Computed example of a mutant assay.
Amino acid sequence: MGRIVKEKDKTWGAGLKELILTPTRIEGHLTVKVVLEGKKVVEAFTSGTMYRGIELLMQGRTLADAVFLASRVCGVCSLPHSLASVTAMERALGIVPSPAAIILRNLMTYAYLIYDHILHCCILTGPDYAPPHGVIENLKWGEGKVFLEGLKMQRKALEALAIFGGKFPHSTSIIVGGVSTDLDPQKLFAFASRLKEVKKWAMEVMIPTFEKLHEKYSSELI
């Protein structure tokens, strides 16, 4: 969350506060600076200054290399980067994946989205609403019930993804033209059983927790 670094600043004048926020939880490459007059934002600035050079790494590489290099943009959301890369190349070349390949990519994407929602809600932002700043005890970093169970459940979702993706992060089965795995019945059963467990937990634990959070803070929503 943000931290107030200056109560009064000669640049901004008396009665103004400068608030620096670093909302990017994983890598911290984005900074937001706002100037407040009471609760009113009077100035705002953003900066994202880290250069990764992924585009330069792509130059002169094969199509197969490009998919795996693109996934290295982020270890948390590597699958969407792989899919974006492979989709761009397929459209450029006029390649249409088979229906089975599209189904498998979609299954991996669904598992990823479930993992990502749990990660975001329970692990990355949830603790901000736990004591000492919030009221949801179960989201407390490192010890809250929902926090700890969220760690296990996001892993379950990633296990499901890896059944077809080969591994996570940087899944290996997404290739130009399709996927390098198949719709095996045993794999489908293993995939579904893991997500069934995650769904049960989400319905019984995660969603009620965030409904409670919404009730607590709904009056503050703009």
Rank of each mutant, 00 (worst) to 15 (best):
L83C: 08
P97E: 02
T109C: 05
Y112I: 00
C122G: 01
I103R: 14
H117N: 09
I123H: 09
T87W: 13
S82A: 15
V86H: 11
H81Q: 12
Y115M: 03
H117R: 09
V86C: 11
T109M: 09
Y115V: 00
N106K: 07
S82P: 10
S85L: 11
E90I: 06
C121T: 05
A84T: 10
Y115C: 00
Y110E: 04
L83N: 08
V86S: 14
L119H: 11
C122Q: 06
M89E: 03
A84N: 14
L83T: 02
P80F: 14
N106G: 03
S98L: 07
A88G: 04
R91L: 14
C121Y: 13
C121G: 00
P99M: 03
L83M: 15
A92Y: 12
L104N: 03
R105N: 03
L113E: 09
H81C: 09
L83I: 13
V86P: 10
G94K: 10
Y110Q: 06
E90D: 06
I118W: 08
C122P: 00
L119V: 01
C122R: 01
L104M: 13
H81F: 15
S98H: 04
L124V: 04
Y115S: 02
T87D: 12
V86T: 15
A88Y: 10
H81V: 06
I103E: 11
I102L: 14
I123M: 09
M108F: 02
I118P: 06
A111I: 01
V96T: 15
A92L: 14
T87K: 15
A92N: 00
A84R: 13
I114S: 05
L124F: 04
